[in-house]
């Protein structure tokens, strides 16, 4: 055993990286996540940088070729009224990328904050928040929108993203709440409380990172859902209105013709899939970066810590009382020996 050495006089060691820095490093190790980032960057460039160089704009009609398939003149074909689908798709991509990438995470953020607050504080906070949540669940979204639409008729896209998020967070909010209720009893949360850490800091520092897996997955799913959900808002007359388009409106318009003019449906849909895919890659990377046990994020230079006692061996036996059971030594070969002398 060591004698506790006072560290005075020893050279200051290099400052250790904090959680944020470590998560970044671990994220950067994930190749698929980097592919996701590259894909998103490519999509953004395509949507914003390419249209000025195109022959057709999204509101031009080429009356010489109505409803033609993909070809040299119109790469993605044209619509019934002769609009160039490539130009339309890029225009739609501009809107949908912004709506999806802002709206998806925003939905999850609302869910996380409301759910975690309700679960962590309990009592009246919990009751009031849950009443509100249930209210949002039972009142049909279109009813509220119908009431609200005159007020927001001429709002910007930001309004519209917030509205979309406001109608999509409830289910996740409930899940986060119940996760928080189990997390709040954990000893590290107690420890933070007894240190005097502010409750909101506890939520953002301990509760939400430990619920990160579900939050990240939810955010990625929400991106796709928001892009499609935006069409229903357009129906109420706000957000994206003709002649402007979004991927959502293009897909909605192309769906009836998917059999006769499949390009009308498939090209916009393919871009939606690309957005979804890239976001999923990034989400996976983030999840692994947050989760210290994930394999993908480990440095390949250091040997992976071995789990000496197989999990299978544990499941085979009756669950043990965690209170008194000697802890399994999950010691990596690379980790130091018990009681290394400094």
């Amino acid at each position: 055993m060591t004698t506790p050495a006072s560290a005075t006089g020893t050279a200051a060691p290099p400052r250790s990286r904090s959680r944020g820095a470590l998560v970044l490093v671990r994220f950067a190790r994930n190749r698929l996540a980097l592919v996701g980032i590259a894909l998103v960057v490519a999509l953004v460039l395509l949507a914003y940088a390419v249209p000025p160089f195109l022959h057709w704009t999204y509101h031009d009609n080429d009356f010489a070729s109505l409803d033609t398939g993909p070809g040299a003149a119109h790469w993605f074909g044209t619509t019934h009224s002769g609009q160039d689908l490539f130009a339309l798709t890029l225009r739609g991509l501009q809107k949908s990328l912004v709506v999806g990438l802002v709206g998806g995470p925003l939905t999850t953020l609302i869910a996380a904050v409301v759910g975690a607050s309700a679960g962590y504080f309990g009592g009246w906070t919990d009751r009031v928040l849950m009443w509100f949540l249930d209210l949002m669940l039972v009142i049909p979204a279109f009813l509220l929108l119908a009431v609200l639409s005159p007020a927001f008729q001429h709002g910007t896209w930001l309004f519209f993203v917030i509205l979309l998020a406001a109608f999509g967070w409830m289910i996740t909010g409930r899940v986060v709440r119940s996760m928080t209720q189990t997390l709040r009893e954990r000893e590290y949360v107690l420890a933070a409380r007894y240190m005097g850490v502010h409750p909101l800091v506890v939520i953002f520092r301990h509760i939400l990172p430990n619920a990160a897996s579900i939050l990240i997955i939810d955010a990625t799913v929400q991106v796709g859902a928001i892009v499609l959900g935006e069409t229903s808002l357009s129906y109420f007359g706000f957000g994206i209105q003709a002649p402007d388009v979004s991927l959502g409106t293009l897909i909605a318009a192309g769906t009836p013709d998917a059999n006769t003019s499949p390009w009308l449906f498939f090209f916009p849909a393919a871009f939606l899939v690309l957005i979804g895919l890239s976001v999923a890659f990034i989400g996976d990377g983030l999840r692994d970066a947050f989760d210290p046990t994930a394999r993908g994020a480990k440095s390949r230079r250091r040997a992976r810590p071995a789990v000496p006692r197989s999990r299978h061996a544990r499941t085979a036996r009756t669950a043990r009382n965690p209170r008194r059971k000697p802890t399994a030594a999950v010691v990596p070969a690379a980790a130091t020996q018990e009681g290394v002398t400094p």
Binding site: S6, A7, S16, R17, P326, V330, A335, E338, P342
Partner: peptide, 23 residues
Amino acid sequence: LRLVGLLPEHAERYPAEFSGGQR
């Protein structure tokens, strides 16, 4: 970290990488 017999380098590791006693 030195006070409890661990190494300063350990600051960058996650708890799961340590044994029960180290934790």
